[in-house]
Design a protein around this nucleic acid. Sequence first.
DNA 1: GCCAACGTTGGC
DNA 2: GCCAACGTTGGC
Length: 135
Amino acid sequence: MNHWLVKSEPFKYSWDHLVAEKTGVWDGVRNYAARNNLMSMKVGDLVLFYHSNEGKEVVGLARVSKEHYPDPTTDDPRWVVVELQPVEKFPKTVTLEQVKADKRLQHIPLVTQSRLSVQPIGKPEFDIIVSLAHD
DNA sequence: GCCAACGTTGGC
DNA sequence: GCCAACGTTGGC
């Protein structure tokens, strides 16, 4: 199983929005690197949910409930979506500041490639963030 | 196929 | 609101 981190501006699509919908369609990705990551997602993969701009923190955990299919918001066949379901709202959010301050997390894409909206994350780093969220 | 111009993202 | 990083577009 792989682990991921997705980013969303809470103004556009927030964690609470995902919880309210129960199943969220992750649409609107228009970047090849992010798209390739979407296409690598498997049902059951765990996904950290990060709020960019406002908050700048990891707020919860989701899982992939449906693998990629063509993005219904465009006729362009290059773009795909996946579906996500909320798993857990973290008792404590993990801020970007915390991530940057942690030596073990210096090399994750959230830090090194801040613009990528769908990122892979290693199991060890994933576990570190989850444990920070339960401190 | 290169590269300059331009647009967007996202942290500060 | 600014700006750095970086992706995309289009002229050559």
